[in-house]
Design a protein around this nucleic acid. Structure first.
Lengths: 119, 119
DNA sequence: CCGCATCCTGCAAGATACTG
DNA sequence: CAGTATCTTGCAGGATGCGG
């Protein structure tokens, strides 16, 4: 796997958290799993427009290794695999709540400025 | 400047926030300025062991453009420049609080597991 | 003291094609 | 359906040296 050198010595808590969330789709995966519960690979892919299968599986594997995601395989044909959040994953998603609200507020502010310019 | 294509259309609030915090030292800069108030370039550099002048100034400029940081120049010899947080910068730092705590808890957990292994 | 200009490298992520 | 495998690329970030 591409799994780079992670788990390095962290300077502060933010670093430790960022190490685990950094990745273009990870926060979205977290949000998706937090809101829909267990989801299948294909469902996640459809829920994250633009993600490639490579990045999706790579992120899921890393998040599993980081203890955020649980992977359940149901041996049957066609194969069925479900991903869900662990307790750590849920708590991380909650910790991201405030940041998400800040970002939403910022987006709204930028949109308002944009509108003011074109007015 | 290297300022890449930012301010893209965001999928969610987290994205908007991440766009602004992503950068190896940005969260540290935020923390430094939040805790020490206005700081000079050299003070920041000393406070962030390992940062290069290039990255420091690059991050500061981007954060200034993003409305997180205020740059005050005092025309004198030797030159004196002070950086401080804007209201937006302070609120972002607060929004990062929960994430920082999560990361600290995670670090502690990892350290405990590490200790358990070597025991 | 506070930067700027270049060159260079490594890794995240995209593209494309194939499989149990 | 749920992945693998391989090639390629873009850009963040490091190293180094100079300048007002």
């Amino acid at each position: 796997m591409t799994t780079g050198a992670r788990r390095g010595p962290y300077i502060c808590g933010i670093d430790a958290a960022m190490d685990v969330v950094s990745g273009k789709w990870k926060s979205l995966i977290l949000w998706e799993l937090a809101n829909y519960g267990a989801r299948r690979f294909g469902e996640l892919k459809r829920g994250l427009p633009g993600v490639s299968e490579k990045m999706l599986i790579q992120h899921l594997r890393e998040m599993e290794e980081d203890g955020l995601v649980h992977r359940e395989v149901y041996r049957q044909v066609p194969p069925r695999v479900e991903y869900s959040l662990t307790e750590q994953g849920r708590s991380l998603n909650e910790a991201l709540g405030a940041l998400g609200e800040w970002g939403t507020a910022r987006s709204a502010r930028l949109a308002a400025e944009e509108a003011a310019v074109s007015a």
